[in-house]
Design a protein around this nucleic acid. Structure first.
Lengths: 353, 353
DNA sequence: TTTAGCACTCGGGGGGCGCGAGTGCTAAAA
DNA sequence: TTTTAGCACTCGCGCCCCCCGAGTGCTAAA
């Protein structure tokens, strides 16, 4: 973007002012904010040009100007200073994270809580199994002869699902079935195995039902992020923003956020530790047109990636948010990979797109 | 409550009117609603008596009256007609539930969703392990030699937690440890076993760490409802109510709801299929003073109880909510116990307190 | 005991008004 | 040519005021 230096400075000042005050910015305000004195008339000229270029908008004739989406985009791409967290902030963050994140599988919920708390925005936390979480092992755990827990063991996580069988299955039968399933799984011919079983076993038998379910669960585990792996926290903080004082708007957004599958689908982010920013319409989803979604990924292991992000008004303090998010992501990754960081970590605010 | 019949009718009409309109109710309004003609002056006399008795309040001199908490209490206890769901409604409910609730352990999340959808209120869903969920079996599943999933099998559910060990532990060692733990668990001397292990095993060894963690997890499983077993859905629906148009109030309540532990603590409900109603201050929690919490429990098994409920303004349509909630609870229990209902089920709206 | 009538109360909505922030334009200064 | 000062103009917002009307309590008659 080959915008003359002075226009850039003016635009930057306007965006930052608006971020802080949520009120349209006038020419005098900006004139006062410059080091070398410059008259408000000059600013006005520049501003009306910036408006023609599509960076500013007027809510009405005699109010100041408000940044457009294009302005925010330019701001985060080129104008924004990167914010560095003070030592104290970082310490508080680390302390809080250490105390909360003792177990690996509570990472998601707690990450969400921490992000929301430290950024003062509504947060989203997602587990993303890139290309599927290659199930390594399946364990059938008998609860009673009609009820089994299927434990799927993946790279460094496990999850279980409890199923009720249509017909009883003894523990020894289950053990046999379990071995067969794992053998099939290792050779990657699980669906074939289940199909084969269908011709042998009695229809409606517990073993057949269980085998089918396992195939389904494994497939599910390997495909998309699913709802149980999306978590939203701090929804109430949305309401603190002036733009969501209108209950209609807030309601729309909250409703959207409670559809976790959709929220999970928002994220297409493959490069870890790069902070992604989606401003307004860039999100696709109409209900997010006046919201921004800022998120970043962290590695949990080679197959699994966590994503944390915040949702707030387009007028959010991007540079603070970015700094905090990436600090949190680095910490998370460090904790997830057991302190002995296998992955090269970037400095906060290094890159974003 | 020995209130004369006419006063009861008037109070009932006022409460119902207010539930529908959210606006203070005047004497004429009520006079018109009666079958035998009765003058507004008479109503006014009655109303001012009801006010003295603490059932009505005046927002200001020249508005109508608004029911007090006591009035809602009396209303749900004695005045309210019980609402019966139409056949169509029940069918839709059952269809939706069948399609959503295939797996047992997704009950909580989906129950919440269904309740929110059918009652049009914010819903809460909790798993309550009355007196602890007696862990029947512990399974150690190796992910790699530094990482294990501990699967706790309870009456008819399972949950797992992934732990990273301080030192490696082979799969065969884990199997031995697993057997020992289960033996100890069966005889209810698990803590003693872990303590004994401490004197034999090397400090900092994987086995010791794991054993300690298992003890901790079992204890945790046996104690309180914990955060991962509380789920809130449809938070946005709060904002549809006139009383939460004020973002301040809405924010307070949403913040409260996002503290899941606290929400879990709200519920002290031991009798299943009885709809409990906590009106305003009855909830204890100050942030719920102008909200009502209506909930009911359903049996999952002898040890485990699910709780579903809704949170809304004190002016909520109690009788519809009660009918729907108890229909949902009965369905849930039926599904959870595999259609062959072991528990005697009540009719909807039968009892509540 | 009920009812009609009446004076009184106030909250809320609408209209009018003035303030002030902000703009665009023009003309002079740099 | 660019910057700046000056000025007329616009218009949203807050303020005040006032009136309307729903609703009340009281009193006196049925």
């Amino acid at each position: 973007m080959d915008l003359p230096e002075r226009k850039r400075q003016i635009l930057k000042a306007i965006v930052e002012n608006y971020i802080n005050t949520a009120e349209p910015v006038g020419s005098k305000m900006i004139a006062g904010a410059f080091s070398q004195p410059i008259s408000s008339a000059t600013i006005r000229n520049e501003m009306s040009e910036l408006e023609e270029m599509g960076f500013l908008e007027k809510p009405h004739v005699s109010a100041g100007r408000v940044p457009s989406y294009a302005a925010y985009r330019l701001y985060v791409d080129e104008l924004m200073d990167s914010y560095r967290m003070a030592a104290g902030e970082i310490e508080r963050l680390q302390a809080e994270m250490r105390s909360r994140l003792r177990e690996l599988d509570s990472i998601m919920i707690n990450a969400s809580r921490i992000v929301s708390h430290f950024t003062d925005h509504t947060s989203v936390s997602i587990i993303d199994r890139a290309g599927g979480s290659s199930v390594k092992k399946v364990q059938l755990v008998s609860i009673d002869d009609m009820t089994y827990a299927v434990v799927l063991v993946t790279e460094n996580n496990a999850r279980n699902k409890v199923l009720r069988l249509p017909a009883p299955l003894s523990e020894t039968e289950a053990a046999v079935l379990g071995r067969a399933i794992n053998a099939a799984l290792a050779e990657n011919r699980l669906p074939a195995f289940a199909a084969g079983l269908r011709s042998i076993a009695a229809p409606g038998s517990g073993a057949l039902f269980l085998a089918d379910k396992v195939v389904e669960l494994v497939r599910e585990a390997q495909s998309e992020t699913h709802a149980s792996e999306v978590y939203v926290d701090g929804a109430g903080r949305l309401l603190s923003n002036r733009e969501y004082q209108d209950p209609e708007k807030a309601r729309d957004l909250l409703d959207y956020l409670s559809d976790l599958r959709k929220v999970g689908g928002l994220v297409r982010c493959r490069t870890p530790y790069v902070v992604n920013i989606r401003i307004g319409p860039e999100n696709g989803e109409p209900r997010l047109w006046d919201a921004s979604f800022v998120f970043t990924a962290y590695d949990i292991d080679e197959q699994t990636r966590g994503i944390v992000g915040v949702i707030g008004p387009t007028r959010m303090d991007y540079s603070r948010t970015i700094a905090r998010l990436s600090a949190i992501a680095r910490q998370l990754s460090r904790l997830a990979s057991g302190e002995n960081a296998k992955y090269k970590l970037k400095e906060p605010g290094d890159r974003h797109e």
